[in-house]
Structure formats: C-alpha cells, structure tokens
C-alpha cells in the first residue's frame, strides 16, 4: 500500500458517498445513468467475488464488501425507491457495445485461462468504460448539477491516482500489471474532457455546462 493507492481508494469511497448523499438529500437520481451504475455492479461482482477464496487484508475485504453492497444499494434506490426520478429516455447508450468487446478482450488478455481470471480481466476492461453511458448522458443533456459533477470528479481522481501508484510499485516492488495499467490509462483518459470543464468551471463557482 502506498499513498497514491490509499488516496485513490479513499477518493473512490468518497465518490460513492457523494452519490448516495445526492440521491438521499434531493430524493432524486436525476442526472445519474442507471446503465453506468448497473455496469459498476457487474464490475464489482465479477472482480470481488474473490472475497471467498483470496484473503489480502481486512482493509481489502472491507472495501470489497462496501463496493458490492453500496453499488447494489444504489441500483435499488434508482430502480425502486426513486424510480419516478429516473428517466431512461435520456440513458440511451447501448451497453452491449461495451459488454461484448470486454468479454472478447478478457478471453484474449488474461493472466490465466480460467474462469476466475477471465472474470477478473473482464471486470478490469469493463470498469475502464463503465462511465461511458454516464458521460454520454451528460453530453446529451449538456449540463449537470454540481453534486453530480463532484461525484464524477472523485471517481476520475480515483483512477488518475492509480497511475502514480503503478509507477511507484514498478520502482519499489518491481511489479507491473499490463492489463490493469492499460485499462487504467484508458479509463483515466475518458475523464480528460470532463476534468477540463470541472476544473475550469465548476471549481470556479460556475455551472457545469458543455458548449453547444
């Protein structure tokens, strides 16, 4: 564990707490893509089921339980409790365009051709693109509530911090994980446009609005 990874994980944790806070206080999931949230459930379940056969640390297990539990809870809030505030007509990204390529990639690129490792690779690839329905929705509506942008920023910062973590681990531990690094760089890259607007507008007190 190093500082980059710890801060990254805390940022990930914070993003979910911000999202829950937004839904609970506004009693609405407006502006949140159900598809992205459903993809995160798939990501966490596919990757963190190793809870049952691989013990790393209490920290690691607790985080895994939290991520699976909170993502399922968010789906429940969107699907049932605040269902009327969820507008599927603007959440139109076709997720099969993500699921199928990720499934194929995970069959080609994995560290061992066995179900658990293929699932792990699949979750890494899927996580890297799971935000696309959300970003697509943002693009369509052209604006977002400040709190939604804080959620996205925390999520993007989590991924960005994993990059110095890998560089640090390469030099201190001599380990490199090409699958995670490649997917992680792609994932961080997807946030660049968003970060630009977030840091130049939202953090300056302006509304998150995309140029027409």
């Amino acid at each position: 564990m190093n500082l980059f990874r710890l801060l990254g994980d805390l940022s990930h944790l914070a993003s979910i707490l911000v999202l829950l806070h937004k839904i609970q206080t506004s009693r609405s999931c407006r502006g949140i893509s159900f598809k992205t949230q459903a993809l995160y459930v798939a990501v966490f379940v596919a990757r963190y089921l190793d809870l049952f056969w691989r013990y790393i640390s209490l920290y690691n297990s607790a985080m895994k339980v939290f991520f699976i539990g909170s993502s399922c809870y968010i789906l429940y809030l969107m699907k049932y409790r605040y269902r009327p505030t969820n507008d599927p007509s603007i959440d139109t990204f076709r997720i099969e365009y993500l699921l199928v390529p990720c499934a194929i990639l995970s069959l080609i690129f994995n560290y061992n051709f066995m179900p658990t490792e293929i699932l792990w690779s699949f979750s890494i690839f899927l996580e890297s693109v799971a935000i696309l329905p959300q970003l697509f929705m943002l693009q369509r509506t052209g604006e977002a509530e400040a709190i939604t942008t804080h959620y996205l920023a925390a999520l993007g910062i989590y991924r960005a911090l994993y990059i110095p973590n890998w560089i640090y681990r390469y030099f201190t531990e001599g380990v490199i994980d090409p699958i995670a690094v490649t997917a992680g760089i792609v994932q961080t890259g997807l946030y660049l446009d968003f970060f630009y607007v977030y840091f130049t507008k939202v953090l300056q007190g302006q509304k998150f609005e995309l140029p027409a």
């Binding site: 994980d9 990930h12 690691n60 792990w120 390469y170 490199i176 995670a180």
Partner: peptide
Amino acid sequence: PPPSSSHDEL
C-alpha cells in the same frame, strides 16, 4: 519485471 496481476489492488 515479469508481468503479474495485481490482485491485491481494488
């Protein structure tokens, strides 16, 4: 270093 999976990461 040889490629290895960082299954210790979240």
